[in-house]
């Protein structure tokens, strides 16, 4: 079924992140990260922010981490980002 979805999207050249709710990450150096298509925060400390998505979790580790802005779609994290881990994301 997923194969069919992907092939249809590929042929139609439709944006996969919107239709499949795939998370999209924008990382600017080690200072800023924006996550689109998230489902909420699972854990929030200044050393670790665990973000839930439709297909798994994104774990951001670092120092002085802070959620600069957050709404239904986007999550903007600033601070000293050291590692970004994609955990449990299913292969789509």
């Amino acid at each position: 079924m997923k194969y069919n979805e992907q092939s249809i999207l590929g042929r139609a050249q439709l944006p996969e992140d919107v239709l499949l709710h795939l998370p999209m990450l924008h990382v600017l150096g080690t200072r800023r990260m924006v996550i689109e298509n998230h489902c909420g925060i699972q854990e929030y400390t200044s050393e670790r922010i665990r973000v839930d998505t439709h297909h798994g979790q994104i774990i951001c580790r670092g120092r002085d981490l802070m959620v600069r802005a957050m709404d239904r779609e986007d999550l903007w994290i600033t601070g000293r980002i050291e590692t970004v881990e994609l955990s449990g994301l299913e292969e789509v």
């Binding site: 802070m66 959620v67 600069r68 802005a69 957050m70 709404d71």
Partner: peptide, 8 residues
Amino acid sequence: VTLRNMQR
């Protein structure tokens, strides 16, 4: 609600 500058 849009949340900004969240500090734990």
